[in-house]
Structure formats: structure tokens, C-alpha cells
């Protein structure tokens, strides 16, 4: 932006001031947490067995959630982007439900779903409620909605023309998708995976309701923050919070360095 006149400069400064308040708040709350504790305290908190278990479960469950979300979001995003069918608008609204609903309500819905007859039947084979699979399912329910939005935007940005040309060159539609469209959607897939991973890492409400907050069993990092806060151990809560900030920032940096930043921004704003 180049503002040459005095009026132009005042306008840009006004915009920057308004936006700056928000940016300042983000940075201030991270810095405030960092100042509250010392590296020694953080290190000490991270040494506890419960926290180490929570770190492990958070990393594994978020990664599995990200993989599952991309696996579902790619076909869903492609269909929404390329096909016209009756009920498409309704389908789009349904996919947005997990984004709009209060997280606790999603957890409650899952809890009740798994107490119905088919749910109980399934639980005889794989126990879900209050067990580790419930953590992944709770994360997946929300993360996948964000991943599907991201993939839809990614496919919208790829011209269907390349795929059509591939079909004239001897490909079926499926082959054209695998050979041409999917490789071109690589940045979008990475963006979707990153967003799903970050959402999963921060998920708390549905996990609390659907998985409980049992130490060394269904405790993820967000649960740790809650548990430590509830017993008044603010130092440990802050230490784990900082760890989560670090992990989220690291994933964002990696994604942006692979060029996923653009799609990520557009998808979240979609």
C-alpha cells in the first residue's frame, strides 16, 4: 500500500491502529503467559508422567485426526466443488454444523449417539466412550469440517479444464482426478491437514463430555490445562499452555513454508 498524500497516510494509520489492537492482544496474552513462569518451572511441569502421557496422546490423536480428516475432506471437497446435485446447499449447511455448534453440544451428541442400541452394539466390539477412540472421534467431528472447507476452496481454485483435457487424452474421470487434479491440490491438502491438526490439538469441550478427563487415560493437553487449573496449580497450567502455543506455531510455520498459507487463510475466511 502506498499512501503519498497526508490524507492517505492518516487513513492507513487509522486502519493499522484499529487492526493493531487485536494483534497486540494476541501477542500480549502469549507474552503474559511466558512472563508468568520461568523455563525451570516449565521444564519441571513437563517432567511429570501425567503431562508426558498427555503430550503423547495429544500428538498421536491429533495426527490420526488430521489423516482421517484429509481422507474424508478430499472426496467431500471435490464433490462440493465439481458437482451439481439436488440438496447440495443442504449438504453444505450440514457440513458447517460442527463449526457453528457449541463444542460441548457436539460432545453431548456423541455421548448420546453411543448410548443408542447401534452405538452400544459397536461398543461391545470397540469400546469408545471414555476411552482413547472417543478422543479421536471428538477431535475428528470438528476438525473434518474445517478440512472439508479448505479442500473445497482448494478444488475451486483449480480449473476443471486440466481435468477435461486429461479425459480427452485417454483418462477416465477417476484417472484424471488421480493424475492431474490431486497433485495440483497438494498445497490445499497440506493446508487442510495443518488446520485439522491444529484444531484437534486445541479441542477440549467435546473431549471433556465424551471422553472424560481421566489422568493417564483420556487426558490430552487441553484437559491437562483444565485439570491443573481446577486444583489451583496455575504454574503447571501456564507451562502446558505455552507448550501448546509452541506446537501450534511450529505446525503453522512448517505449513506456510510449504506454501499452504494462502489456501489456509482463504479456507478459514470462506
Amino acid at each position: 500500500m502506498t499512501g503519498t498524500g497526508r490524507g492517505d497516510r492518516a487513513f492507513v494509520i487509522a486502519l493499522a491502529l484499529i487492526g493493531g489492537v487485536y494483534v497486540f492482544l494476541i501477542v500480549a496474552l502469549v507474552v503474559a503467559q511466558a512472563m508468568y513462569t520461568t523455563p525451570g518451572t516449565v521444564w519441571e511441569s513437563l517432567g511429570s508422567g501425567a503431562v508426558r502421557y498427555a503430550i503423547q496422546l495429544s500428538l498421536i490423536s491429533s495426527t490420526l485426526t488430521a489423516i482421517l480428516s484429509v481422507w474424508v475432506a478430499v472426496p467431500l471437497g471435490y464433490l462440493l466443488s465439481r458437482s451439481a446435485f439436488p440438496g447440495k446447499r443442504l449438504l453444505e449447511a450440514v457440513i458447517d454444523i460442527p463449526i457453528i455448534l457449541p463444542p460441548l453440544v457436539i460432545g453431548l451428541g456423541l455421548l448420546i449417539l453411543f448410548q443408542t442400541a447401534p452405538g452400544r452394539l459397536l461398543q461391545r466390539i470397540i469400546p469408545v466412550t471414555y476411552e482413547v477412540p472417543s478422543v479421536i472421534l471428538a477431535q475428528f467431528m470438528v476438525s473434518c469440517a474445517f478440512a472439508a472447507r479448505t479442500m473445497r476452496v482448494a478444488f475451486d481454485e483449480i480449473s476443471p479444464r486440466s481435468e477435461q483435457v486429461a479425459m480427452t487424452l485417454g483418462c477416465t474421470r477417476a484417472q484424471a482426478f488421480w493424475r492431474v487434479t490431486l497433485p495440483e491440490a497438494g498445497g490445499g491438502i497440506l493446508a487442510a491437514a495443518t488446520l485439522a491438526w491444529a484444531r484437534a490439538l486445541g479441542e477440549f469441550g467435546p473431549i471433556l463430555v465424551f471422553s472424560g478427563a481421566t489422568r493417564m487415560k483420556t487426558e490430552v493437553l487441553s484437559t491437562t490445562v483444565f485439570l491443573e487449573l481446577s486444583i489451583g496449580n496455575l504454574e503447571a497450567a501456564v507451562a502446558v499452555s505455552l507448550l501448546m502455543v509452541g506446537m501450534a506455531v511450529a505446525v503453522l510455520i512448517v505449513a506456510r513454508s510449504f506454501g499452504a498459507g494462502g489456501s489456509l487463510g482463504r479456507a478459514v475466511g470462506a
Binding site: 480449473s159 486440466s162 477435461q164 480427452t168 483418462c171 497433485p183
Partner: peptide, 19 residues
Amino acid sequence: APADRGGGYVPQDRALFRT
């Protein structure tokens, strides 16, 4: 189907495969 027509097609925007 387009694949079975045996025609070579060059669209106006060329639509080269980016990757």
C-alpha cells in the same frame, strides 16, 4: 467418452498441468 474419441484437444487457456 472423451477418452475413446481419439481426438487431440488444445483449449484456449492451454490448461497445462501445473505439477
